[in-house]
Write a protein that binds this DNA or RNA. Sequence first.
DNA 1: TTGAAAGCGTTACCAA
DNA 2: TTGGTAACGCTTTCAA
Lengths: 351, 351
Amino acid sequence: MPDSPTGLRPTPPPSRYGSRPTMKDVAARAGVGLKTVSRVVNGEPGVTAETESRVRSAIDALGFRRNDSARILRKGRTASIGLVLEDLADPFYSPLSRAVEDRARANASLLFTGSSAEVPEREQELVLALCARRVDGLVIIPAGDDHRYLEPELAAGVAVVFVDRPAGHIDADTVLTDNAGGSRDAVAHLIAHGHRRIGFIGDQVGIHTADERVRGYRQAMEAAGLPIAAGWVSMGPTTPERVRVEMARMLGGSEPVTAFFMGNNRVTVTAVRVLADCPRPAALIGFDDFELADLLRPGVTVVAQDPIRLGRTAADLLFRRLDGADEPPRRVELPARLITRGSGEIAPTVV
Amino acid sequence: MPDSPTGLRPTPPPSRYGSRPTMKDVAARAGVGLKTVSRVVNGEPGVTAETESRVRSAIDALGFRRNDSARILRKGRTASIGLVLEDLADPFYSPLSRAVEDRARANASLLFTGSSAEVPEREQELVLALCARRVDGLVIIPAGDDHRYLEPELAAGVAVVFVDRPAGHIDADTVLTDNAGGSRDAVAHLIAHGHRRIGFIGDQVGIHTADERVRGYRQAMEAAGLPIAAGWVSMGPTTPERVRVEMARMLGGSEPVTAFFMGNNRVTVTAVRVLADCPRPAALIGFDDFELADLLRPGVTVVAQDPIRLGRTAADLLFRRLDGADEPPRRVELPARLITRGSGEIAPTVV
DNA sequence: TTGAAAGCGTTACCAA
DNA sequence: TTGGTAACGCTTTCAA
């Protein structure tokens, strides 16, 4: 087409969004009724083979794809679920995501994922956006500690499962790791290897997993009748800098620790670096397994969670609800497992 | 409520899916028109403060949430994009996913994710399911090599960007790493350190990245005027068993290799294990960085891709198209970077 | 400032 | 075996 008559906008920008063909278009082209097309598209019975093939040709010729927004609007169920976690890129959560995804797939559902970055407002924003999309269910690794905003969704029948940390002020299915138990096992293991002065470095107070892990540490020390000196427990941001400072402090002084129990794998990795440069060997156990822990020298003993099982269990609970299970909310606690590799079996150095 | 009069089903199972309130319900409760509710919900101007507060009270009382399926059906755009990759849990892809997610967020879009497990049929199934959901765009790490099935979507204006591997039989934006270049650099680095007999173990022939990486290996050897013996290149499944066998073979015989260049990080990790038990030290460089590579002794020299940048670039191309950019498809190639850590700087052992 | 009515593309229901 | 017609819950358009 030549220049426009007005001479103003030479050519109107070509409409990028070529409108898609609808069932109506297919019906017109195939010379059948709209409902017949719907039947073919959805594999419903009651269509002659001949009619069906006419419809299929029209579908292919036009490149028709059913518009699921309209379908969802009509049917109610969206066949999609949402997963909100702290960080998609965190190696601990990615197997969990994958497990949830596998279950979603098995249940013919699509999966929305989103990272809250530990910011409660972002969690809520994401969750509500997913609710507006009318996801059938939600798997949430909570960043916030008040989930009352979900009450309308629960009332409307949206299935919600919390993972890794409990929900706040709301009664819903929850899948947790036995953090305290795992920590008890780890610390008891160090004690069994002769350690009496054991340091703990964990995440910020207030984070559920962090709190539970110190709790397990204290329980194990107490059960063994061991005192805990003031400086042996350190909670705070898990930056390498802080961890280095705290380790140096605990390794110095008149009552140096001979072993460390670390509250998460970020801290553990920093600890490995510190101990590599440390003249006096100290034992080390970390909470959470990490890749290549067995390749290091010594191998790093850890208390491992099972992120795949965590995700699978959560998704199973979710789909059980979606299948109509009408039981009170459950709280499932999965065990953590001690994996010995060497670093946790180092005997205390006599001072 | 007491037993039902019939005595049959004591209480009908409570309808799990309490129908949600709609704008109509809110309007009725607030005593205003439907459109006024819509205005308030969407922050449109032209509503008295007093009317607005009446509407807001009704919204809160009813727990109303806008139904985005209906909204999408009317508006056309879904404000969501899809990401289809090989495996959500693969540590290489999770930072890429996160980068795409960040960009989606910045563009007020939600993200669907799905794993193809390298199965072309599954890729197509996932992609088409996402298209039925009318995602605005797709980021695809292809499993298959024929993407003509996407023609109707491209025609309809769906933005599609391929990452990590090229699309098949279709012209679309693509973001790749310079695999051949990175491999050339790695092998040249080994040659510069005195190696003449260098083995390569890579993934299956036919996988684009695998092919490109052997190509780079051959180019570097050729550029240095070095012959490549028949047994020095091995392509196939990257199972630990095969890698062990092939390494043993290359390290034995009359012309043993003195260095290895590994085609991906799975192979590299196996190689680290093998070399740890190997009396004669061999140099090692791996394609793809991996966590803790610097903590091993020696640290593992690698050619690193930048998965975050890969994801970010792809998402940026995507949203640029969605913002109306009307340019021919681009092919962006990002550099790979050699990171020296020790294992690649070991001198050849004289035989 | 407000609201009534039409329509988005599908499925449900019923009639032919 | 087929195909109207009325929803689904919202946004758009236009009139009050």
